[in-house]
Design a protein around this nucleic acid. Structure first.
Length: 488
RNA sequence: GGAGACGUGGCCGAGCGGUUAGGCAGAGGUCUGCAAAACCUUUUACAGCGGUUCAAAUCCGCUCGUCUCCUCCA
């Protein structure tokens, strides 16, 4: 099925056509590992996960997905520096070597991050590669030299800058974002002292080392400039090294359009002569309880904060799917609960199908399955319209009780739900838990006793026994001619 | 100050010129000692004010509000 995506570069919905038939190379801007990632960050990564899964399942593409880890920048340097209060004992002791400290610090948060996304269902094995910026030092330096050779970079005070004015003579600067050159000055406070750049719009490719900072040697135009790479250069270098240019899709949060992605385009084109990608796809922000997420408002959550509150990671995943990636999402606890109920309703439907299908899952599609499948998949193919896809699913469920299908039909539908779960990844395919529940004899006896009391209309005793069952961790549900036990 | 986006019923969230979106919650019902579940039925919309049109939540203008970017940021 053809997939369409909103391309920030053209500001329009475009039909996605890969550069190589059947294959997609995709790069996602990953986290800067200076702290635990929060749920706002997670939206970006869950969006990339969704996109790559839709490409695989709906588009039937072979997808190479790369997401970087930024392990060198101002914050990681600041927080890993000697004596910083942000240093955690889990990171071990601090050494005398700033580079080593940076490594220990960022490795800690990178590991935590990879764990967090795994919790949310972003699987490590789905990545082609998760590169760390500092492992690509040589490639970055090589790219900077190439930009220098083209005359678009200059050295100043030990730092190397990209010369935007010079670049503008060759190509557009402002592809993702319309820029008024004059705009830069008005009303904006730019920390000019920190930089010796010629123009405020120039950006740094290589930063000179300051006292005590981690640094790498870099030979540029005959000088050794001890320092470290600028923020944008890592993506350009790793993309070229790992995926080759151009590749198909680049994702990231909307805030990265400018300057990060704009600068990435300029650098790659200046250095390699090629623009990195054809499709730039950006996810919108997440709000919490209708407000911008911030520490001072107390609505700033990391994944582990939510898990500590007893929230199921699958419900976070579902909630993130319940709005289209391109619109703002209001993350609320009520929404989490509403989503949970909706998700479990589908799960219950799957259990129902499982029962009818006699545990058989078939990939052969009946007409019913085909109709549902194309309805749901075409919504996903339509710029990842997950809410609409959900709506199709629920509309189908509302019209077709699971119990109404015969075994063949149910098996076929299960096949589709499983296929769909390769994207959403929030359901289980197994018998309804109650049916395989191990019930201790003592509990069975209690339940029997209660049922007897109930039939004799001794409700006080019946309710007392219900309480006892609850103490054993079981809930009893009555129906007309019997009862069922469930794990509470 | 400049650039851009958004404002849908109690909440979330699609729709983007004419047709019931969907979910959660609420209400009524079936069932029921109670409770839970399940199923059926169902109420409440398009920020405000103008304009274009046979027809506007959907297009245009203004106002108000929220957000993003221009500075590190998913």
């Amino acid at each position: 099925m053809t997939i369409s995506l909103y391309n920030t570069l053209t500001r329009s919905l475009e039909e996605f056509v890969p550069l190589h038939e059947g294959r997609v190379a995709m790069y996602s801007c990953g986290p800067t590992v200076y702290n635990y990632a929060h749920i706002g960050n997670m939206r970006a990564f869950l969006f990339s996960d969704l996109l790559h899964r839709v490409l695989r399942v709906v588009g039937a593409y072979d997808v190479r997905w790369v997401m970087n880890i930024t392990d060198i920048d101002d914050k990681t340097i600041r927080d890993s520096s000697k004596g910083a209060s942000t240093w955690r004992t889990e990171m071990g002791a601090q050494s005398e070597d700033a580079v080593e400290n940076l490594r220990r610090f960022t490795e800690f948060y990178a590991d935590e991050f990879l764990q967090d996304i795994a919790t949310l269902g972003i699987k490590r094995e789905n990545f082609y590669k998760v590169p760390y910026a500092t492992h690509y030092m040589a490639s970055m330096q090589h790219l900077i030299r190439r930009i220098g050779e083209k005359g678009i970079a200059y050295e100043r005070g030990g730092s190397v800058y990209f010369n935007v004015a010079e670049w503008r003579k060759i190509d557009t600067y402002g592809k993702l974002f319309k820029i008024d050159a004059e705009n830069f000055q008005e009303g904006v406070r730019i920390d000019a002292d920190e930089y010796d750049r010629e123009s405020v719009s120039d950006f740094v490719l290589w930063k000179a080392q300051k006292d005590g900072e981690p640094a790498w040697d870099f030979e540029f135009e005959g000088k050794n400039l001890s320092g470290r790479p600028g923020w944008h250069i890592e993506c350009s270098a790793m993309e070229q090294d790992i995926l080759g240019l151009p590749f198909d899709i680049h994702t990231g949060g909307v805030d990265l359009c400018f300057p990060h992605h704009e600068d990435e385009i300029a650098q790659s084109k200046a250095g390699y002569g090629v623009e990195p990608t054809r499709y730039w796809v950006h996810n919108e922000f997440l709000e919490v309880e209708g407000q911008k997420m911030s520490k001072s408002l107390g609505n700033f959550y990391t994944v582990r904060d939510l898990l500590q509150k007893g929230i199921d990671a699958l419900d976070i995943r579902w909630l993130m799917l319940s709005a289209q990636y391109s619109s703002r999402l209001n993350f609320t606890f009520a929404g989490l609960e509403a989503g949970r109920k909706a998700r479990l309703r589908v799960q219950d439907y799957i259990f129902g199908l499982w029962e009818k299908a006699g545990a058989q899952i078939h990939s052969t599609r009946t007409e019913t399955t085909n109709t549902l499948r194309s309805a749901v998949f075409s919504e996903l193919a339509n710029n990842l319209n997950t809410p609409k896809a959900f709506a199709e699913l629920f509309t189908f469920m509302n019209r077709n009780a699971a119990s109404a299908f015969d075994a063949a039909e149910a098996s076929s539908l299960l096949g589709f739900f499983q296929e769909l779960n390769n994207i959403f990844d929030v359901w289980k395919f197994e018998a309804r838990p109650g049916e395989t529940l191990q019930i201790p004899d003592a509990v069975k006896a209690l339940a029997e006793e209660r049922w007897k009391a109930r039939t004799m209309k001794n409700f006080a005793e019946s309710d007392r026994l219900r309480g006892e069952l609850a103490a054993h961790g079981f809930t009893v549900k009555d129906s007309k001619d019997g009862y069922t036990l469930e794990k509470a």
